[in-house]
Computed example of a mutant assay.
Amino acid sequence: MPRIFGREPALWLGLVAIVVKAGAAFGLQVTPDQQALINALAAALVGAIVAFIVHDGAAAAILGLVQAAIALAVGYGLDWSADQQAVVMSLVAAAVAMWTRTQVTAPVPVKAPLPAPLAGSRE
């Protein structure tokens, strides 16, 4: 399992959840829905970090992170319509796709094109 600053990702997520709950117990004004959104954003962030560490699924992790961040912002009062959220997600998806294209290589070399069939042949 990859580690973040020497600790397993689940430990970091547990710490975030406890800090948020402790903060709420000592006067931090967060609703249960906002606590859930904070934890969702933390999970998406940790997922993105792990994806980068293991070099697998980074694009999906980035999209999940942005989606969680938008949900958190809306939960805290950002007044974006569903259409505006979709436009931002589309923009992020396009940017991630452009970045991914520069990172991906074919697993096998490209084959030379086949010669054109001769006239009269059955191929």
Rank of each mutant, 00 (worst) to 15 (best):
V104N: 03
I53G: 04
N39P: 03
R101E: 15
L78Y: 07
P2H: 13
A59D: 10
D83F: 02
P9K: 07
D56Y: 15
A69W: 04
A69H: 04
V104D: 04
Q85S: 15
L37K: 09
P107E: 08
G120K: 00
V66S: 08
A25G: 09
P2G: 12
L15T: 10
H55K: 12
L45G: 15
T31H: 01
S81D: 09
A17Y: 02
F52C: 11
F5W: 13
P2E: 11
P9D: 06
T105F: 01
I53M: 11
A82F: 05
A93K: 07
I53E: 14
L114W: 13
E8P: 12
A94G: 06
A69I: 02
A71E: 11
Q35K: 10
A68G: 12
V74I: 14
P115L: 01
Q85L: 13
A106Y: 04
A43V: 01
R122F: 12
D79A: 12
V110E: 12
G75F: 01
A68S: 12
I18R: 10
L15C: 04
A106R: 12
V104R: 07
G6D: 01
A22T: 05
L78A: 15
R122N: 15
V30E: 03
L78C: 05
P117T: 02
P109W: 08
V50N: 08
A112D: 14
W12Y: 05
D33S: 03
M89H: 02
L41G: 09
A112K: 14
L45C: 07
L72H: 11
A106H: 08
A17H: 06
Q85K: 10
V87M: 10
Q35Y: 06
M1I: 10
L114I: 03
T31G: 01
P107T: 04
V20N: 04
F52I: 15
D79Q: 15
I38V: 14
Q35C: 08
V96T: 02
A25D: 01
A22G: 04
A73T: 05
R122D: 15
P107I: 03
S81H: 05
V110D: 15
I38R: 03
A119P: 04
Q35S: 11
W12D: 06
L65G: 07
G23E: 03
A40T: 02
D79W: 02
R3W: 07
L15G: 11
Y76G: 06
G23H: 05
A48L: 06
A42Q: 01
A59G: 13
H55E: 15
F5Y: 09
L63K: 06
V46G: 03
K111H: 02
L63V: 03
V50W: 09
I49D: 09
V54D: 05
R3N: 09
P115Y: 03
P32Y: 05
P115T: 00
V20C: 01
A24W: 07
G6V: 00
G57S: 02
L37R: 14
M98H: 08
L11G: 11
G23D: 01
G77W: 04
P107K: 05
A61F: 09
G14D: 13
V20A: 07
A97V: 00
L13W: 09
L114K: 15
Q67A: 14
V46L: 12
A71V: 10
K21W: 05
A17F: 03
